[in-house]
Simulated scan of single mutants.
Amino acid sequence: MSTETPPKEFERAPNHFTDRVGSPDWPLEAGRYRLVVSRACPWASRAVIVRRLLGLESALSMAVADPIQDERSWRFTLDPDGRDPVLGIRYLGEAYYAREPEYDGGISVPAIVDVPSGKLVSNDYPEITLNLEIDWAPLHRDGAPDLYPEPLRDEIDEVNDAVFREVNNGVYMAGFATRQRSYERVAHRLFERLDALEERLTDGRYLVGDTITEADIRLWVTLVRFDAVYHGHFKCNRRKLAEYPALWAYARDLFQTPGFGDTVNFDHITRHYYQVHRNINPTGIVPIGPDLRLWLTPHGREDLGGRPFGDGTPPGPVPPGETVPPIG
């Protein structure tokens, strides 16, 4: 038996609060809950995109945290007086402790908070989007797309499982690896999966079926951050996203689709990763690239057919107060 110490790998902590809106304890009511996000966070970005595509803006208000955390984690310093105007709190952690005063775990986004009580309902990011898609259906806009169609759920779940292990979480496992062997193992798995996705998307416009689904949203939130932060900051540098013809065109296609690019704040993304992760980037210097204007270049994916919103329609304009800085 080898006595060599096994290589360490990054482990993501399980989510502690897993309740669903629409359950007896948390009935579905328009205006009762608040979605707390950071535009820097890919896990939170999933919920932002789904909320927008389904037209839940008027039913589920949204708070955007500062991309730069302090020792108490996510804070509302983007709001007047550093306090969320709806929840009346300075830190997201206050909603966690209102729910469980002795809680001593991490404070993460996305989070759904019950406005009347100020208590956290859920920080279960894989389930929050499914909750919005299924349990919140009575409050969806007219023409909302079906992002989790029942006949395709098994295939969507299978794709999501592989994408989570090797892409969504894989970039973090590479970035936070502290040993060479561990880093190389997860980095190789990441690019093997990206190679497989490149092949899958060469002849198909979307990952599952001919419309946008939950699977596309989960992959895309990592792709949109790839060249800006994961390639350099997390050492995922065997290839840039822009060096994958199909994946890069696929990512641009979705970026230019209402509900995707209009939710992205690259300034929040780059400042968060490069300034918060001082163990990886001690100087806190934020790089000037890549050229974001490339996201607006033609992608040619229309030639593959597909119906982005299926039998539904695109979402309407971004609500006032939720716009992001334009590229260009």
Rank of each mutant, 00 (worst) to 15 (best):
M1F: 12
S2R: 13
P6M: 05
E9V: 00
A13P: 03
P14K: 04
T18L: 11
R20C: 10
G22Q: 09
P24E: 13
L28Q: 05
L28A: 10
R34G: 01
S38R: 11
R39F: 08
C41V: 08
W43C: 10
S45H: 15
V48H: 04
R51P: 05
R52A: 09
A59L: 07
L60F: 10
L60P: 05
S61W: 04
M62R: 12
V64H: 03
Q69I: 15
E71Y: 06
R72W: 10
W74P: 02
W74T: 02
R75P: 00
R75I: 10
F76T: 05
L78G: 14
G82T: 06
R83H: 08
D84W: 03
D84A: 09
P85H: 12
G88A: 13
I89H: 08
Y91K: 12
E94M: 11
Y96I: 10
I112N: 07
I112F: 08
V113I: 14
P116Y: 12
S117A: 13
V121K: 07
S122I: 04
S122H: 05
N123E: 14
N123G: 07
T129G: 01
T129W: 01
E133K: 05
A137T: 12
H140Y: 08
D142Q: 14
D146Y: 03
P149L: 12
D154A: 15
D154Y: 11
E155F: 06
I156G: 01
D161V: 12
A162G: 13
R165C: 09
N169W: 02
G170A: 10
G175R: 02
E184L: 06
R185Y: 13
A187Y: 00
A187F: 01
H188T: 15
L190G: 03
L190I: 09
R193T: 15
R193W: 02
L194W: 13
E198P: 03
L201E: 04
Y206C: 02
V208D: 06
G209M: 06
T211K: 03
T213P: 01
I217M: 06
I217R: 01
T222R: 06
L223G: 03
V224D: 03
V224Q: 11
A228K: 00
V229Y: 02
G232H: 13
K235P: 00
L241A: 05
Y244F: 14
L247Q: 02
L247I: 06
F255C: 03
F260V: 06
T263M: 14
V264C: 07
V264A: 11
D267K: 13
D267P: 00
T270G: 00
T270I: 14
R271S: 11
H272G: 02
Y274E: 04
Y274C: 04
Y274N: 03
Q275G: 06
V276A: 13
N281I: 08
P282D: 10
T283S: 15
T283P: 01
T283Y: 07
G284I: 11
I285G: 10
G289K: 06
G289Q: 07
L294V: 12
L294M: 13
T297W: 04
G306E: 04
R307H: 14
F309P: 00
P315W: 07
V318D: 04
P319W: 11
P320Y: 08
V324P: 02
P325T: 07
P326W: 01
